[in-house]
Design a protein around this nucleic acid. Structure first.
Lengths: 140, 140
DNA sequence: GTCCAACCTAGAACAGTTCCAAGGGTGGAG
DNA sequence: CTCCACCCTTGGAACTGTTCTAGGTTGGAC
């Protein structure tokens, strides 16, 4: 799969310094950053990036389908650049860590479709990660 | 299943007028209201209910496990009183309508568990409801 | 080099939710 | 029945995440 930056250029997207930095932050697997994470990491590279640009750019990437947006229980949106491979998520309910996982899509029986046209399915496995599980043991 | 109000009373929960009204709003299947919906519906019955009480009460109900909280794509939390029966959700991506549906839980292969202790799984079927589907046809 | 459109910035505005201090109502002890 | 302590409720302020706005900047075509 070609790098994100190349795909953006071939779409005719104007590749400014700010957008390049943001696109570079949005790279990899198991990456599920908040807008604020992106803001801070971008700032570390290019200090004059503004918050508005981060939000604008993330929303454009989502609109182009280059990044997935997901809504987390804490109300903050997370952005996931791993769009090349269908996957679901495994979330630690204690620390909020998120991993990409492969699992079969659940099927919706015809009688349960209520006449809706199915477009896709999102699956989130709620779990406790090893670190948090051992922390629970040691305090009980 | 006993009514929500009865279950609350048997927990020794102080059943004030405000709480009773809120609990009555939170009844039924296919109910996925926002805090603001609850606020307005409660007000229609008991005009002096405050927003803070609605939030306090909803959070307590969630803490007791009598109501499920779900985070919607628009950022507003929804509250679902249908906790008696395991179910998933079918959401219209255009109008946001939500229905409860029965479907098998997807399984997470052992190799994908990354050592996490599995607690549950949330499934959201993204779809277009009949009303929105016909609206799309008529405008294209 | 000039110009235009697209882009970026800082800060204001906004929406949803939580926090806070003060007042009010209720259940239980006496 | 009375009283008190405590829990509950209230309105508004505060907070957080996100979007909007007005104006300044930049890149690329010519």
């Amino acid at each position: 799969m070609t790098p994100l930056v190349d795909r953006l250029r071939s779409r005719g997207w104007r590749l400014t310094a700010q957008r390049r930095v943001i696109a570079e932050v949005m790279t990899g697997e198991h990456v599920h950053v908040t807008a604020d994470d992106v803001f801070e990491r971008s700032r570390a590279v290019l200090p004059e990036v503004s918050r508005a640009t981060v939000y604008n750019t993330l929303n454009e990437l989502v609109g182009m389908g280059e990044v997935h947006e997901m809504t987390h229980a804490d109300g903050r949106k997370r952005y996931d650049p791993n769009v090349g491979e269908r996957h679901h998520h495994l979330v630690c309910v204690d620390c909020g860590r998120i991993l990409d996982v492969r699992a079969d899509d659940p099927q919706l029986p015809g009688v349960e479709r209520h006449g809706f046209e199915l477009l896709g399915v999102d699956v989130t496995f709620r779990a406790r990660c090893p670190d948090c599980a051992s922390a629970v043991l040691s305090t009980s």
